[in-house]
Design a protein around this nucleic acid. Sequence first.
DNA 1: AATTTACGTCAGCCTTGTTGACTTTCCAAG
DNA 2: CTTGGAAAGTCAACAAGGCTGACGTAAATT
Lengths: 166, 166
Amino acid sequence: MAEGNTGGESLLFLTDEQLRKGIEAMFFAYRGFTADPDRILEGMDYGRAHHRAIHFIHRSPGTTVSNLLGILGVTKQSLNRVLRTLIDDGLVEARVGKDDKRERNLHLTAKGQELERQLSDAQRARMRAAYRAAGPAAVQGFRTVLEAMMDPEMRRQYQSLREGEK
Amino acid sequence: MAEGNTGGESLLFLTDEQLRKGIEAMFFAYRGFTADPDRILEGMDYGRAHHRAIHFIHRSPGTTVSNLLGILGVTKQSLNRVLRTLIDDGLVEARVGKDDKRERNLHLTAKGQELERQLSDAQRARMRAAYRAAGPAAVQGFRTVLEAMMDPEMRRQYQSLREGEK
DNA sequence: AATTTACGTCAGCCTTGTTGACTTTCCAAG
DNA sequence: CTTGGAAAGTCAACAAGGCTGACGTAAATT
C-alpha cells in the first residue's frame, strides 16, 4: 500500500523498520562483496588487508605511504606489515620519491598486477551481476545512498579518486 | 554526455570503471556504516562482534545459538566467546529451550536492550540522514542492488527476517 | 541401546588492528 | 649551517576476533 508514493513528500521510507532493513542489507551484502577475493586469497599468505593495499596502489600508481594511510584509515605500523610482505614478495615496488626523497612512490610489479587483476575480476564479476540484475536506475540510487552514508572525509577521498568520470 | 540514457538498454553502467566506483563506494560507505557503533563500543569491553550478536538477538528474540551461527557465519567457538561475556555481564539471557532442552533461547535483558537501543539509534541516525539526502527512489535502488549482491544463502537469511514488511 | 544433535569449553594459532618508543632521512625555516 | 619537524621504517607488546581440533554433556532421535 502507498507503494506508488515515492514522489518525495512521503516519509514512509524513513521508518525505523525500513532503516533496520537497510542496515541488515549492508551487513549481508558486504559479506558477499568480500567473499570472492577472500576465497582467492585464502591459501596464499595474504588477506583482506593485502587486497585493499593492492587495490588502491593499482588505482593510484605512484601514491605515497601517507596517502595510502589516509585512504585505508589504519596505522602506519599496520600498513607497513602488509606492505612489507608485498614488497618482499615482489608484488609492490617502493620507489624513493624524486622530488621528496623521504616519500616512497608505490607501484605494482607485473606480478602484483597479475594478482590485482585476478582479485578485481572476481569482485567485478559479482558487482556486474548485481548491477545487471538491478538495472541502471537502481545502480544510480545505490551509489547515491552509499555516498551519503560516508563520513565527509571519506567522501572526499572517494570523490578525489574519480578523475576521468563521464 | 549520454547522461540521460538510463532507460534500460544502455549498458554504460556496466563498464569496469563504473564497477570499480561501486566497489570503492562499498568500501568507504561500510566504514561510515560501522563508525558510530564502533565509537560507542570502544572503551566498553565490547566490539563489533558483540554488536552483531546483540542486533540479531534483538531482531529475533528467542533465537537459538545454531540459528545465530548461521546468520553471523562464524564458528561456535568464536560466537561463544562473545555470547559468554554478554551473558556474564547480564546483557543477554540464555533460557533452556522448552520443547527441545538442548537448545538455548537467547533474549536481551533490560540492560541489553538499553545498549542495543543506544547502538541502533546511532546507526539508524546515519542511515536516516543518508536516506533523507538520497530520497525514496535512490533508497529503493540501494536495497535492490545490495540484495542482488548477497550470496543466495545470505539472501535467504535476509529475506526470512522480513516478516511484517509493508 | 546407540547415535546424532545442540551446546559449551579448553588450547592453540593467525590476521589485522592498536600504542609506544626509537631511528634515519630529509626538507625547510631560522 | 643548524635545527626542528615531517616522512618513513622498525621493534616490541598487546587485543579483538576469526580459525581448527579435541573433548564433554545432556537431550533427542532412531
